[in-house]
Deep mutational scan, measured.
Amino acid sequence: MATGGRRGAAAAPLLVAVAALLLGAAGHLYPGEVCPGMDIRNNLTRLHELENCSVIEGHLQILLMFKTRPEDFRDLSFPKLIMITDYLLLFRVYGLESLKDLFPNLTVIRGSRLFFNYALVIFEMVHLKELGLYNLMNITRGSVRIEKNNELCYLATIDWSRILDSVEDNYIVLNKDDNEECGDICPGTAKGKTNCPATVINGQFVERCWTHSHCQKVCPTICKSHGCTAEGLCCHSECLGNCSQPDDPTKCVACRNFYLDGRCVETCPPPYYHFQDWRCVNFSFCQDLHHKCKNSRRQGCHQYVIHNNKCIPECPSGYTMNSSNLLCTPCLGPCPKVCHLLEGEKTIDSVTSAQELRGCTVINGSLIINIRGGNNLAAELEANLGLIEEISGYLKIRRSYALVSLSFFRKLRLIRGETLEIGNYSFYALDNQNLRQLWDWSKHNLTITQGKLFFHYNPKLCLSEIHKMEEVSGTKGRQERNDIALKTNGDQASCENELLKFSYIRTSFDKI
């Protein structure tokens, strides 16, 4: 039985969820670079991206490699990797027998973001014989899940209580170790020597080791999670996991709180800001991140802002960003909400898709409305799209047979046209069989910064309504002859009103 693990408890099935942008060198404390989270699957090609990484700022997932063999891993080693800020997950990587050479110096898994409450997941690794993470000293947050690894031993010899604050939620089941077939031998045991430290858990006094050649490092209890030197002297209180010299914040392997210019500090002093819960960055760093993602459509890219001495992905609820200094300031009234469309555009074809934009005031991208039916549609669209004030790209209304009016965009005031449909149009209306009105132009103002209007096959939309939009939106004169079809717009509506004058002759039985 794995020490510190839980057996036999019912657990939810383990679901495996399925960018080499360097964020800056980590400095003297770390020998390499800070790398983003990685999802490495199918083959070993991307694994080489770990070569210079000291910190993975995010998670590391290595999974679904069915053609790899043990010899493929023999020359692979990433000794610079010290810390993973989120979680480490391995799933069905064939041929991998140990992690001792792959990650010989991995010391800390912070667990800032977890995989279903777990910071370390080893699942269905069919050839893994031992973990071998002999320098792993601290899992700051989260638990361990090690399950269905039929060859995995050296679990009962690990004292997880020396690595985690609590072992109650560890789930370590259905491994070879369960069948008591392992016969784990710690260093020196074969020669009758006791080389590794022994600890007591559940009444068992057991030597602690990761492999037959690597003991588990056990520091004096007084050192807590700070770690200790090879001689057993406690590291500085700002260290986490390990250090090369005692009581020196510049000799830590990793930091308990924050890293700044080669030393570990309790908090980031001005003019620095907390970033990702582990390091200090200056304003320029946060500003660069903001600008890199301002026009990016890459998933996970955030326009970072500053709030409460932190550089964070977005302002919290009730705050909006001051564009001059990136500071989050309290909103006066309802907060603006910028919604970034991942692929640059979004099609609204149902109430469900409209709900995804609920509360958005600025759309960074283009909207395509293609709704053919739905219950209580006008009210639903207004509830979900009615706060949109600005669209950076274009607005396209296409084959939306259920629409009679666009009044559900009740606050839309600006279409920038930074991206144009077919390279020309910022407003595009095609084949809307029941569209009769755009907006009530006596109450609604709309500016279209650039781009043209396109109207074709809107049989109940009168040309007068379209011409009014040209005047109000500032697009009059931009359109070419064929942009607004004269014969297919309003051709099934009563669009022309003329005053009919009647004269009559009164007659009676005795007068003409």
Rank of each mutant, 00 (worst) to 15 (best):
L29C: 00
L29A: 12
L29V: 10
P31Y: 14
G32K: 03
G32T: 04
G32M: 13
E33V: 14
V34H: 02
P36L: 08
P36R: 15
G37V: 00
M38A: 08
D39S: 07
D39L: 00
N43H: 10
L44V: 12
L44P: 09
L44I: 14
L44K: 05
T45V: 12
T45P: 12
T45R: 10
L47V: 10
E49G: 09
L50T: 02
L50D: 00
L50A: 05
V55M: 01
V55I: 10
I56P: 01
E57I: 06
G58P: 00
Q61T: 01
I62S: 00
M65I: 07
M65S: 09
F66K: 01
T68W: 03
P70C: 01
P70T: 07
D72F: 07
D72S: 10
L76F: 11
S77N: 05
K80L: 08
L81D: 03
L81C: 01
L81V: 05
I82N: 06
M83Y: 06
M83D: 02
I84K: 03
T85D: 00
D86H: 15
Y87R: 00
Y87I: 00
Y87D: 01
L88F: 07
L88S: 02
L89T: 02
L89N: 00
L90P: 00
R92V: 02
V93F: 00
G95W: 06
G95T: 01
S98R: 03
L99D: 00
K100S: 14
D101E: 11
F103Q: 00
L106Q: 00
T107P: 00
V108H: 14
V108D: 15
V108L: 13
R110Q: 14
R110M: 14
S112V: 12
L114W: 01
L120D: 00
I122G: 01
I122P: 06
I122R: 01
E124V: 03
H127Y: 12
L128V: 02
K129N: 06
G132E: 00
G132A: 15
N135L: 02
M137H: 13
M137Y: 09
M137D: 00
N138D: 08
I139Q: 01
T140S: 07
R141M: 02
G142K: 00
S143H: 13
V144R: 01
I146W: 00
I146M: 08
I146D: 00
K148R: 10
N149M: 00
N149F: 00
N150G: 13
L155N: 03
I158Q: 04
W160E: 01
W160Y: 09
R162S: 08
D165C: 14
N170R: 11
I172E: 04
V173R: 14
K176A: 04
D177A: 12
D178C: 13
D178V: 09
N179Y: 00
E180A: 13
E180K: 15
E180M: 14
E181N: 14
E181T: 03
C186E: 03
P187L: 12
P187I: 10
G188R: 07
G188C: 04
A190K: 06
G192S: 10
G192F: 09
G192I: 01
K193M: 10
C196M: 04
C196L: 04
P197I: 14
T199V: 12
N202E: 07
Q204W: 04
Q204Y: 03
F205W: 08
V206I: 13
W210Q: 02
S213T: 06
H214M: 10
C215L: 08
V218W: 12
V218Y: 07
P220M: 00
I222P: 04
I222F: 02
I222W: 10
C223Q: 02
K224C: 07
H226F: 15
H226N: 09
G227L: 01
G227N: 02
C228T: 00
C228I: 02
L233Y: 05
L233R: 14
C234I: 08
C234Q: 03
C235F: 03
H236M: 04
S237N: 12
L240K: 11
G241A: 06
N242V: 07
N242I: 09
Q245W: 04
D247V: 12
D248E: 09
P249N: 13
T250G: 13
T250M: 09
C252D: 00
C255I: 00
N257P: 00
F258H: 06
F258W: 04
G262H: 08
C264K: 00
V265A: 08
V265W: 11
C268I: 01
P269T: 12
P269G: 08
P269I: 07
P271A: 12
Y272M: 13
Y273G: 02
Y273A: 13
Q276C: 02
D277Y: 07
W278T: 07
W278M: 00
V281M: 01
F285Y: 13
F285A: 06
D288N: 13
D288G: 11
H290W: 14
K292L: 13
C293G: 06
N295E: 10
S296M: 09
R297E: 04
R297N: 09
R298M: 05
G300P: 11
Q303E: 14
Y304T: 12
I306H: 01
N308S: 07
N309Y: 12
K310C: 10
K310D: 15
P313Q: 07
E314Y: 04
E314A: 08
G318T: 02
T320P: 02
T320S: 10
N322R: 04
N322A: 06
S324T: 09
N325Y: 07
L327S: 08
L327D: 02
C328I: 02
C328M: 02
T329V: 09
L332Q: 12
L332V: 09
L332F: 09
G333F: 15
P334V: 12
P336T: 04
